[in-house]
Design a protein around this nucleic acid. Structure first.
Ligand SMILES: [Mn+2]
Ligand SMILES: [Mn+2]
Ligand SMILES: [Zn+2]
Ligand SMILES: [Zn+2]
Lengths: 142, 142
DNA sequence: ACCGTTATTGCATGGATTTGCGATAGTGGA
DNA sequence: TCCACTATCGCAAATCCATGCAATAACGGT
């Protein structure tokens, strides 16, 4: 099992319709261990549904993101996605110089998040936060 | 004084040329108390330089960002900018529902940032981090 | 003031993502 | 199983931002 059956139920329970296109996108993202770009999802989806449009891919990924089924990672001006695994939550640090990605325990952001919640009533979208910056290799020398 | 004379010196000292287009962008961003969108910068810049191209605006804003002269804020799929004021550093929380913006003392991110630096050698681009999420008004009910 | 070097510009084009709209198809109920 | 309702889709166009290239202009040196 790929572990996304519950996601299908989630969709249905929220009143969304289950279309072959959506199932395909879900399968593809769930089948990929790491992050996958929207265009890659499209290419793979076309193998099953040759007429599927890229707009549908984007709309589906956005929907799945809103529902918490997938997580978004911003890598060098492109959006990537991965199945949200509640047993392996993590955030991402992306180097703006070399586009390398490192994962981060959400514990690092926990206190920060709680303070925003308590002091401002602001609920950060922690799952989809991408921390941009420079990795250890790309540090400016001097 | 608008407080960006030092920015001009900074540009020159880094070997960049001072063009009227760049001066104009700098004046416009410095003259605006809050955040300003790239298209707004363009419209204002055209009043002084009718032939200036939007690409130049984007390139200039990116340059000023790289040099730390301006700060970037992501508001609802659009980039906004503001003059970086070292005496009033702040981060931004943007509501993905209503696009409202709240400012945040960088102190909230200080510890988090230091841990990333020490434990991973990763230097987050703190000045340009935009925290997405839901503001207190847009919280889901229930 | 003039010149040569080369960074920067305007213009055109490209890439990624979003959106409007009429046609299609999922779904719940008869 | 068939229907009606309407969410979703494919398609086309729009939006925002980035980039390649030849022409231009900034600037240090004369
Ligand atoms: Mn990941
Ligand atoms: Mn601000
Ligand atoms: Zn790097
Ligand atoms: Zn809000």
């Amino acid at each position: 099992m790929s572990g996304h059956e519950s996601a299908v139920a989630h969709l249905r329970s929220e009143g969304y319709r289950m279309t072959p296109q959506r199932l395909s996108v879900l399968d593809i993202v769930a089948g990929r261990p790491g992050h996958i770009g929207a265009d890659e999802v499209w290419n793979l989806a076309k193998e099953q549904h040759p007429y599927v449009d890229l707009a549908t891919i984007y709309r589906t990924l956005q929907l799945l993101k809103r529902l918490g089924v997938v997580t978004e990672v911003v890598i060098g001006n492109k959006l990537h996605f991965e199945l949200a695994n509640h047993h392996d939550r993590h955030n991402h640090m992306v180097c703006s110089e070399c586009d390398s990605v490192q994962t981060l325990s959400p514990a690092y952001l926990a206190e920060f998040s709680q303070r925003l919640q308590q002091e401002f009533g602001f609920t950060p979208d922690l799952d989809n936060i991408t921390i941009g910056g420079l990795c250890s290799i790309c540090q400016p020398q001097g």
